[in-house]
Amino acid sequence: MKSPLVLAAALYFGAASVAEAVLVTEFLFDGTDPTVATDTSGNGFHGTIGGGATRVPGVLTGSTAMGFDGDDDVVSLAPSDFAAGTGPFGSTNQEISISAWVQFGITNPEQSTWWYGTNAGGGRQSQVHLPWENGSALWRSPNGQIGVGIAAEVTASQTSGQWHHFVFTKGAAGNQIWINNVLRSSGGDTGTFDIVNATLGNNIVNANPLGWDGAVDLFRVYDHVLDPSEIDTLFAEAFPFELTDFNEDGFVNTADYDIMAANFLTEATNSTDGDANLDGFVDLEDFVLWRADFEDPSIPSSAPASANAAPEPSTLLLLAAGLLPTMRRAPRRLT
């Protein structure tokens, strides 16, 4: 079930994504070479592993991801030359999408650099902080200057060791940050960029590197803005269940409603607690999402050999009505 934000994004950014997004670099981080991140896009833009970054268990069963220690670990992308049309950014200077599954470590300082792109002179062209000093994901593109960029809150539940999907896009209409298939922020600069060198996990090309601690898997760079349906597909690759399928049995039904009702108006650590929008709290927003998926004929709602009558939400709604002032004051983040 697409959220209203997904549908709004499709309308707002549709004009910027007329051409199909082309995959230019893909690091699955499988394999055993300690110095090479193989580009499986078919373009041959292999990355260089440095600083002692090592492979760790990945988001998919049996796969591996790249682990970063928060110090000098880094994966450097192949160099680009837009004028010559070579490298990962040789075909684009206005649109870009970066997609990856991310697992945060426990020692990330404020302003940790997850992604960094510079021009030929070393000037910052693109940057992602996970997190920035205010606890948010900060996406700076095209010029990456201080005060230019968009931010989206990264909740404590998203930094608790679970895998989460992030997408950062930049296009003619501005920038976007998607977290777990939900558009969290949009706007920002619309100018062009000139990325020659780029690094993942560090801004090692800078004199004052700010290393990132955690793991990255299924890392992909596209030369166009990904549309909501493409982001949905990437999210489903490693999260095959609907977010409203709280018990992850393949069905959105009353069993999931019971989980949500049991945790209503409480903090949550992941979707299995009834937190459908993954904002760290179970509330009416999650009920609305569950109800929409429950009534969506394209989503299975009945387990084999079991009746699945539509639930009566009156108890939940009455509870919400009575505690609505409390809910509005309730913390939206885990502490």
Rank of each mutant, 00 (worst) to 15 (best):
V196E: 12
S126E: 15
Q162W: 11
I195E: 11
G187I: 03
S160E: 14
S185I: 02
H165W: 14
E110Q: 10
Q162R: 12
F193W: 06
T192H: 01
F166T: 07
Q162H: 11
W132Y: 13
V167T: 06
N197K: 05
N93D: 14
F82C: 00
A83Y: 10
G171Q: 02
N197A: 07
W178C: 03
P142N: 11
A173M: 01
S112I: 04
W132I: 03
N143H: 08
G191S: 07
G87M: 00
G174C: 01
V128Y: 15
T86C: 10
A83R: 10
N180M: 05
A151G: 06
T190K: 09
W115L: 09
S91H: 11
S157E: 05
G201F: 06
G85V: 11
N93K: 13
G147F: 09
V148A: 09
S185N: 10
G87N: 00
W178P: 08
A156R: 15
N93M: 07
H129K: 03
R184Y: 07
I150D: 12
Y116S: 02
F104Q: 06
V167W: 01
I195L: 07
T118K: 01
S186A: 07
G85A: 12
F104C: 01
F82A: 06
Q111T: 04
N175P: 00
S141L: 09
V102F: 11
R184S: 07
E153Q: 15
P131I: 05
L138R: 01
G147V: 03
R140V: 01
K170M: 08
F82P: 00
S80R: 03
E110A: 08
G122E: 12
H164I: 14
V148I: 06
W132E: 12
Q127T: 03
P131K: 08
S185D: 13
S99G: 09
G171M: 04
A151S: 14
S99T: 13
A173V: 00
A156V: 11
G174Q: 02
T86L: 13
G105A: 08
